[in-house]
Amino acid sequence: MEENLPASISRTIQTKLVLPPDTNHLGTIFGGTILSYIDEIAAITAMKHSKEVVVTASIDTVNFLSSAKVGDILHLEGVVISTGRTSMEVYVKVECQNLKSRKKTVTTTAILTMVAVDLNGKPTPVNGVIPESEEEKALFQHAQARKERRLKINELSKECGL
């Protein structure tokens, strides 16, 4: 197992075009389509960090801040922001760019937990991460609080029989 890795090792960027089948009757992109894109980039990001296959353990937060319309360009960026023994938190930011004006707007942010698994589907250890940007450092500082919140939610779900 290697030492802690810089966050930039995992940084992943994708670009998508919003097409008519991706949109609802208002001409804005379906939230489910955005979630699919987010899950895909989070998986790729976590695989780049861990060099292992990963599964999605949770989608902790998704903030839909604004919408994207047909013809807009989506820029998705993912980066590993913290790690556990076998898990990685991935931050994903989605920006929408209007083709004509070139104006960019953040449409969605999300934090997902991905778990590295071996060929038998068993969790496998991952390297730690070294945050580099100010945004990564701020997200890294609050990782323990997010983990504690996830554990409380899991406990409550079990108590409620979910």
Rank of each mutant, 00 (worst) to 15 (best):
T124L: 06
K147T: 11
S157R: 15
H75K: 15
K48Q: 06
T23D: 07
E136L: 07
A68L: 12
E148Y: 00
K69E: 12
K103P: 00
V54S: 04
I111W: 12
H49Q: 06
L65G: 05
S8G: 03
P6V: 09
K103E: 13
F64Y: 14
C160F: 14
N4T: 10
C96A: 15
S50I: 04
S36T: 11
I111T: 15
E52F: 10
V106L: 08
V80W: 08
P131E: 10
E148G: 04
L139T: 08
P21N: 05
V55H: 00
F140L: 00
G121K: 07
S50C: 03
M1A: 11
M88L: 08
G128R: 06
I111N: 13
I29Q: 05
E155L: 13
Q141N: 14
T15I: 13
D39E: 06
M47I: 05
V115P: 12
L156E: 05
V55T: 14
T45C: 15
A46I: 05
T124K: 15
L26F: 11
N63V: 03
C96Y: 00
N154R: 15
V18L: 06
S67A: 13
F30M: 09
K103N: 11
V92I: 14
S66C: 02
I153C: 05
R146V: 09
V79I: 15
N98V: 06
D72L: 05
C96S: 15
T105I: 14
I59H: 01
S87K: 09
V106S: 11
T86W: 07
A110L: 07
I44C: 01
G161D: 02
D22R: 02
N4G: 01
K122E: 15
K48P: 00
E148M: 11
G32I: 03
T12G: 00
I81H: 03
Q144T: 12
S82Y: 04
L26D: 02
N24P: 02
I13Q: 12
K152G: 01
L162H: 04
A68I: 02
A143G: 12
L162P: 00
V80R: 06
F140G: 02
E95W: 10
